[in-house]
Every structure is written in structure tokens, then in C-alpha cells.
């Protein structure tokens, strides 16, 4: 048992040195992580039993997981990010009393929030948020960022989100920010279709936060928008079609039968 723990420690050291290099080799890190994970299953790595592991073990395990989270972001591996985060959360929450707070804690939790937001999993975003103490939500830069984003998103203040993109609290946030802005573009496109009769290609480029009209053109082609001669996109208003909506006869009949049935049981 102890020998294998020493092994993990050694691996952990190599991982650390690799990770702290200026340009870490992520593939290398990942393979070390894989070995460590297999090694750790022999220990009380996850809170599955009632056996208390020593604080040192917990600390190392937590450190390893933190590296794992950042590594998977660097490798753009979302499922693995989610897995590491799930494991890490019990170190942050369940062992809150036993361990000293990690320096990376809020950084990574904020990252997780942003991840949920970029996946449009708003319900989970809020349950995660409830777990954090209120003053942290208000003051911590890492947490405040995704919280503000969520608010802008709900309001429809997309302009602010594009602004927020340039002042992220950490480089790791960029990966999810890019995903988020792609979802945003789709949202905005839908708004444009509904709210404008026609829009010029220049202002569409500005609204969608593209750098050039070419990008806008590609995007518009995907959406099947038609660019007119005068440089305007013209949106077909769907209302006229709506006016001749057929009566949902089946549904009305369904209701009537339902009422009759209920009335019969009463009388």
C-alpha cells in the first residue's frame, strides 16, 4: 500500500515539473495523469468508504485533479473536463472543513460555471451557484465574471458579453468564451430575423461581432439569408403566413370530450 503511494508521489512530482514548464507538453501530462489515476484507485481517492485518508493524501489528490482540469482545457477535451470537475468538487465541498482552501478553487469553480453557461445548462449553473457563499459571488473576480455573463444573457445585453470577452480573469476562460460567443451569434441571428425588416451587411457584421463582412457572408449563407442588391439582408416576416392558421379541431374536440367525461362523473 505504502509503496504504491510513493509511486504516485513520484509520478506527481514528474507531473508537477512538466506542468510548471513554460510550455508544458500536454500529451505527456495526460499520460502521466492516466497512470496516476490508476494508482490512486488503490487509495481512498474518492469518498466511497468511511475510511479516513490522511490530509496529505487528500491534498495531493486535489492537486492532481486540478492539474487534470487545466490540462483537459488545454487539450480542448470537454468530457474529460467535466469528469475532473465532478471529482474535484467533492474535495472543495465535502472536505471543506478538513483541508486548507486551494488557491485554484474559485478559479476552477468559475471555469465550471462558465462551462455550464456555454453549454446552455442554466439550471445546473444556478444549482452550482447556490453552493457558493454569497459574498464570494459578489466579490471574487473569477466567480463574478460568469455571474455577470449570465445576467447579460438573460437580459439580452449581448453587447456587454462581447465586451466581457476581452477582459477575462484568466486565459483558461477563453476556450469557453469562444464557445459561448458562437452560441451567442446564433441567438443574435434569431433576434435579427424577428426584430428587423432589413439590415445592412455592415451593421449585421457589427451586431454579430465579426471582424469582416466576409465572415458575415459565410454566416449568412448558413442561415440562408439573402443579400439584396443594395447590400441589405431582407427578412421575410412570418406573420402573414400565421394569419391563416387552421383551427386545431382535433384539440378542441379532445377538450370537449374531456369535459363531458368529467361532468358525467360529477352528475
Amino acid at each position: 500500500m505504502t509503496s504504491s503511494f510513493d509511486e504516485i508521489k513520484n509520478l506527481y512530482q514528474t507531473l508537477k515539473t512538466e506542468w510548471n514548464k513554460k510550455k508544458p507538453d500536454f500529451k505527456q501530462c495526460n499520460s502521466i495523469l492516466l497512470q496516476i489515476k490508476i494508482g490512486m484507485t488503490k487509495h481512498t481517492f474518492l469518498p466511497t468508504s468511511n475510511v479516513e485518508a490522511s490530509q496529505k493524501e487528500y491534498l495531493i489528490a486535489r492537486d492532481i485533479l486540478e492539474v487534470g482540469v487545466q490540462c483537459s482545457i488545454a487539450m480542448h477535451d470537454i468530457p474529460s473536463f467535466e469528469r475532473y470537475m465532478a471529482q474535484l468538487k467533492c474535495y472543495y465541498l465535502d472536505y471543506r472543513d478538513k483541508l486548507p482552501e486551494s488557491a485554484n478553487q474559485y478559479h476552477l469553480l468559475g471555469l465550471n460555471l462558465l462551462f455550464l453557461l456555454s453549454q446552455n445548462r442554466v439550471a445546473e449553473f444556478h444549482t452550482e451557484l447556490e453552493l457558493l457563499p454569497y459574498d464570494i459571488v459578489q466579490t471574487n473576480t473569477y466567480i463574478r465574471h460568469p455571474v455577470a455573463l449570465e445576467q447579460y444573457l438573460m437580459e439580452g445585453n449581448y453587447n456587454k458579453i462581447f465586451q466581457a470577452k476581452s477582459n477575462v480573469p484568466s486565459d483558461t476562460y477563453n476556450f469557453f468564451m469562444n464557445i459561448l460567443s458562437n452560441t451567442l451569434r446564433n441567438e443574435i441571428a434569431e433576434c435579427l430575423q424577428k426584430a428587423y425588416k432589413k439590415v445592412s451587411i455592415n451593421s449585421a457584421t457589427k451586431m454579430l461581432n465579426f471582424n469582416s463582412t466576409n465572415e458575415t457572408n459565410d454566416f449568412a449563407n448558413k442561415k440562408k439569408w439573402i443579400l439584396g442588391q443594395d447590400g441589405y439582408y431582407v427578412f421575410h416576416l412570418e406573420e402573414e403566413k400565421k394569419a391563416i392558421e387552421p383551427l386545431p379541431a382535433l384539440q378542441i374536440a379532445d377538450y370537449a370530450i374531456q369535459y363531458a367525461k368529467e361532468l358525467e362523473t360529477i352528475v
Binding site: 445585453n157 453587447n159 456587454k160 435579427l192 426584430a195 439590415v199
Partner: peptide, 25 residues
């Protein structure tokens, strides 16, 4: 803060069916 913000907010409101309107940019 800015009319740009307002434009986005209004266009979302229109999409969500809060008001029936069009924007002339």
C-alpha cells in the same frame, strides 16, 4: 449604459414576444 445595449435588449424582447415591434437601424 449605451444605445447599443438597448438595441440588443429590445431585439431580444421582440423575439421573446414581449412587445410587437420592429427596429429600424
Amino acid at each position: 449604459d449605451s444605445p447599443k445595449d438597448a438595441e440588443f435588449i429590445i431585439s431580444k424582447a421582440i423575439r421573446d414576444g414581449v412587445i410587437q415591434a420592429t427596429i429600424d437601424p
